[in-house]
Design a protein around this nucleic acid. Structure first.
Lengths: 360, 360
DNA sequence: TGCACTTATGACATCGGTGTCATGACATCG
DNA sequence: CGATGTCATGACACCGATGTCATAAGTGCA
């Protein structure tokens, strides 16, 4: 690969003059400049970032650590793709600044993370972003204090800058919207109990009910994701069955995610129930391939991965430029409700009538 | 950030000795080594890759150019995620070698590609991988001859090393399997005419029919993806309708991809047809979130993105190490058929009976 | 015409590592 | 006991850019 000296020789000038042409930091005579540019083109010269970095100490690199790309060789969950939207948002934002994103993958084995961080530090990245595959609590090894880091889709307990989804508000807004559409018996099929989102979303669900003076009925809240993936359909089937046989059965099923909603569509139809004429269904995530493609399209809440990625990258850029504060804490990002045809609009007027009837 | 000189001073040795401890390229006395390691730990020293690279000319970097991460700000296609499995396969394979992957994103605007290539060359990447979001023909700007490149999910007409999916064989194997299961009237809802895969897959479809001496019936092959995304459901509905009203209606619908199959499930059920009892459905891609979650689970062919990513990375590594040949042409990767409950097994014995009946 | 000033260019040191070669201290062997 | 070889270590140059400073040529103004 040609160097700046080769170019200087070919153009019969000093290396420093070539440098000036490249960076435009001092005026260069037109004839000289043309000769240099001609030499650069003829030799196919591309300046070396490494040499440049040695003097400037600016690498122009941002490191991204994720388990999202290859969680395992054969991912247990068939989902596990949407969180790549986070990477998309980050890449878009970082790319705009002219910096280059380096991606490393922990394969979701946290013991590999320190090694990846070391590689990034060797490349003198200006900042780091850590992306978790789902909303969770993490604990990362300490970093040198001059390298900022932003956690994305996760948080820790020492106040590291973080960007997480607003699970409580998402579920709240969806349920509030269902209530506005006239639903009162709102079933909720949750995700596994041990994930952070489940608790937050149930809070949102209860909050929305409370605001509408609807009593919380534990019989309407069941986990739809117990046990192994193989038994999942059976678990769902049983939970749905139980709820449909209640004295006051639900008029709508809220699902833990759109994938679960897809399963619920199939189960309900196998029982001869039409969506939404006999029963409404709502999801979570706005996983578009499912939500928009399902027939009828699925009402759901956006899990705002792309927006979170953008926000995380912005925060990191602020930290790098010195504007941001590393103690500014956690950003919570909410996503909108997408109202589609999987939920019926019952008339609000009917709602009050129903209430009256029931109060008789 | 501490340098090797700081460490040398702290350990009271020469920088070269520190270098030897780091790289183990020459024996170092135990006491000296311990002192050096202590100094490294105390100062939090991390060697600079840039400085290292200046002498060694080995960057340890591989560049990946893709439009797959952010095709546009608001992707027109709600799909556009599975091709990230390519990135996953590449990352896995590159990561094993200790090299670091740099990712840049063209945002699917090809005019940005030269700029991205330049950035990578400045970082002196050892090789490049270009990933297309779907199987297509591309034309990249020329590269310096000492930087190898592998095209993935695309190819060009000048014989650049490439890895593409075996669309013909995938569709062939699926149809052959359907025939083995006793199906003869096999409908085929294709993707858009202008994409490479459509032609190849139709060849595979015809080939499989030919091998079983089943006549090709153009009435059974219709494009399911004409016009805008909004009208897609309508187009599908019409195509399905037309085929179901044939004198000899199909017993199975092959879809252009799993997403289309998901739509077809909904349409068939709305017409009161049960899958698979009344009519069978097959997809393409093995997009697991859909194929495994659909009820009943979907028979489909794998579009072997992860395997292709692995293969592409392997080929690049061979080229970098000098083993591979840059004129070895195009690798075609086939994926297996996933046989699930969306297709009925008709008895082969019945098939011959049916044939007899028809020949009467 | 001479002096101050700008413009265009080059010489040289420097960034942080590593390759090459030299050197001093021991160990081994005839 | 001296010659030879091995081991541990250091001095120094070099990789390819760029910052600093010096200098030569040209420009404006008194």
């Amino acid at each position: 690969m040609a160097t700046i000296y080769d170019v200087a020789n070919a153009a019969k000038v000093s290396p420093k003059t070539v440098s000036r042409v490249l960076n435009g930091d001092a005026p260069v005579g037109k004839k000289t400049r043309d000769a240099v540019n001609a030499a650069i083109a003829a030799l196919g010269y591309v300046p070396s970032n490494a040499a440049r970095m040695m003097r400037s100490n600016k690498s122009g690199l941002v490191g991204l650590i994720t388990g999202a790309i290859s969680d395992t060789i054969e991912p247990a969950q068939p989902a596990g793709l949407p969180e790549l939207l986070l990477v998309r948002g980050i890449q878009q934002t970082i790319g705009l600044t002219g910096k280059t994103l380096m991606i490393a993958d922990s394969g979701n084995r946290s013991e590999r993370v320190p090694e990846l961080i070391k590689t990034f530090l060797e490349h003198r990245v200006e900042g780091l972003i850590y992306v978790a595959p789902y909303h969770q609590n993490v604990l990362l090894p300490p970093l040198p204090s001059d390298t900022p880091i932003v956690l994305t889709n996760c948080f820790d307990e020492i106040g590291t800058p973080a960007v997480i989804p607003d699970d409580r508000r998402g579920q709240h807004d969806l349920v509030a919207r269902l209530i506005a559409a006239g639903h009162e018996r709102i079933a909720y099929l949750t995700l596994r109990e041990d994930i952070v989102a489940t608790g937050l979303r149930r809070n949102g669900y209860r909050e929305a009910l409370g605001e509408a003076d609807i009593a919380y009925d534990p019989a309407l809240v069941q986990c739809g994701e117990i046990g192994s993936p193989e038994t999942e359909t059976q678990v769902l089937w049983t939970a749905i069955d139980r709820m449909l046989n209640l004295d006051q059965p639900p008029t709508v099923f809220c699902c833990g995610n759109d994938r679960q909603a897809l399963k619920v569509y199939g189960i309900l139809r196998s029982r001869g129930l039409a969506v939404p004429d006999d029963i409404s269904v709502a999801g979570y995530d706005n996983y578009r391939v499912i939500a928009e493609t399902l027939y009828p399209p699925l009402t759901t809440v956006e899990l705002p991965y792309t927006a979170m990625g953008v926000r995380a990258a912005q925060r990191l850029l602020e930290l790098i430029s010195g504007e941001g504060r590393s103690d500014a804490g956690t950003d919570v990002v909410a996503g909108p409700v997408y109202w589609r045809q999987s939920v019926t609009e019952r008339r609000p007027s009917n709602v009050s009538q129903l209430k009256l009837v029931r109060e008789d």
